[in-house]
């Protein structure tokens, strides 16, 4: 049995609503708040119920439709590997910011990004990453007076 897009979406949101509802019941409240007409759990519980109901409705309507198998999710033609690499690069950029600071991580992020997307000319790779990173760093730190931490690794090395 192949699930169509609506069925997959409906199932995902049904699970999400049930999980959300479970955690909504775990929200800590101040003593006596449970007797108030509206407390921290009220809206989340209402949303969980509504979400579950509408997801179930979407699941039902998409299962009853005659064209239910026409709209299946197909990932053919999508470059998932490259997408994963680019997203991974953003995660690494976030980590690098903490360790090696803004300037170096920006230059490396751009360099790796251009490379991943197919740019191979060394001159182009360097000229469109390093001067850009220096320019942005200069604007932020010198013109806009924004403090950018140098990075923990750099501090450690410089300190040592």
């Amino acid at each position: 049995m192949t699930l169509n897009k609506d069925q997959i979406g409906g199932l995902i949101f049904l699970c999400l609503s049930l999980t959300y509802g479970y955690y909504a019941g775990q929200v800590d409240m101040l003593p006596g708040d449970e007797f108030e007409p509206f407390n921290a759990r009220s809206l989340p519980l209402a949303l969980a119920t509504l979400g579950a109901l509408i997801s179930a409705l979407l699941l039902t309507t998409s299962s009853l439709g005659k064209d239910r198998n026409d709209d299946t999710l197909s990932l053919a033609g999508f470059d998932l590997l490259l997408t994963g690499k680019m997203l991974g690069l953003i995660v690494l950029f976030g980590l690098a910011l903490h360790w090696i600071g803004f300037l170096l991580s920006t230059a490396l992020f751009l360099l790796a990004g251009y490379w991943l997307l197919g740019e191979r000319r060394p001159k182009m790779l360097l000229l469109s990453s390093v001067p850009f990173a220096i320019g942005i760093w200069f604007v932020l730190t010198q013109l806009l007076d924004i403090y950018l931490a140098p990075g923990q690794l750099i501090t450690l090395l410089m300190g040592a």
Binding site: D6, F13, L16, L47, L50, G51, I54, S55, L57, L58
Partner: peptide, 13 residues
């Protein structure tokens, strides 16, 4: 419509 309603609830969540 149903998808938009679900997304609205997701945003509220």
């Amino acid at each position: 419509v149903l998808k938009a309603l679900i997304m609205t609830i997701f945003g509220l969540m």
